[in-house]
Write a protein that binds this DNA or RNA. Structure first.
Lengths: 106, 106
DNA sequence: TTGTTATTTTAGTATTTGCTAAATTAAGCA
DNA sequence: TGCTTAATTTAGCAAATACTAAAATAACAA
């Protein structure tokens, strides 16, 4: 799950948000930010290694798009967190619903 | 969205996963990892600032639990990413479903 | 070929991060 | 009042990160 490390950087998060709207070349991505093409390329490498994006070559251009692999992995982690949490609340709710209770633990 | 920066660290992710199963004191959290209580305290501070966890005092103990604020913010970002993406696939699907097409751009 | 465009890789650097050890704060107990 | 327990804060340091500038790769165009 180094996906979170990949998304820790605001520029990389911006790249992912852009790619959610459609595939873009490295240069098109670079145009959207105030840093060098080199820096963008390095960010794209991190996103690639985290499987958040994938590339295909088109002449001398590199076209980037979101990688379902990483998106699903991320979504899975978050969904799991949410579901454990939901379970807890259900349990708490059930507890509160009990008659009058002798409880108050500790 | 510094939530992703907060979750970039594997120890902090572990803390969040533990808290998804229920509230824990600082010490109970520290017991689950091989680093000092000081290091855990610093991680908890990062998670608190990102609003991923919140604390309440109980005598000299600090009880930590997941903060709905951050969990919802994170889930929201991921859901939005997913929904933009779903829209794109619907559009692509519609495109592919078209009669026979004169297309093939560029 | 030589030049141009698109992109990546390498080197070097300043900043940030995660850790430990030591000091500090604060509540409960003798 | 001290001691003990639980936790945080501070200082200092080694490792990781994000950047720029410069060099390298590679495809197309003259």
């Amino acid at each position: 799950m180094s996906i979170f490390a990949a998304l820790a950087d605001p520029t990389r998060r911006g790249i992912v948000e852009s790619l959610a709207r459609g595939a873009l070349s490295s240069g098109e991505i670079a145009d959207q930010f105030d840093i060098s093409a080199s820096a963008i390329s390095q960010h794209l490498k991190v996103l690639r290694e985290a499987q958040m994006v994938r590339v295909r070559a088109e002449a001398q251009r590199r076209i980037y798009e979101l990688d379902p692999q990483g998106v699903n992995e991320l979504a899975g982690w978050v969904d799991e967190l949410r579901s454990y949490w939901a379970t807890r609340f259900d349990a708490l709710e059930a507890e509160l619903r009990k008659p009058a209770g002798k409880s108050r633990k500790r």
